[in-house]
Amino acid sequence: MPIKLADIAIFIITLAIIVFYSVTTLQKDSNSSYAKIEIDGNTFIYPLEKDLIKTFHGPIGDTTIEIKNGKISITESDCKNKICIKMGKIDKLGQAVACLPNKLLITIEGESNDEVDILSY
């Protein structure tokens, strides 16, 4: 079978698809921000795209965080003032929620801070 025009066309289209796939995959995803939780010298990382409820043990008791619909918040805490719960949900790069009595700090971080950081200032 001789090589036909369609072969060359498919060759180029397939190559283009592979290049497109590779570039989009290897490019740092700006949507993939994640929550960084620091407590008691330990660091935890949770992507915001996955729903999660987790309880952490701090110096004065338990603090429960919840990730839902791409936002993270503190839903329960053993602290007295409950300021952390009132701080609400966060999802933007650079935002933070903390439960100071329990020494828990949540910050939103991302792969490409550059552009978004400028916007948030």
Partner: peptide, 14 residues
């Protein structure tokens, strides 16, 4: 009739 095995094989592999 416009394609040879190269084109078909590339589609299959992809």
């Amino acid at each position: 009739n416009k394609v040879s095995m190269i084109g078909i094989s590339l589609i299959g592999s992809l």
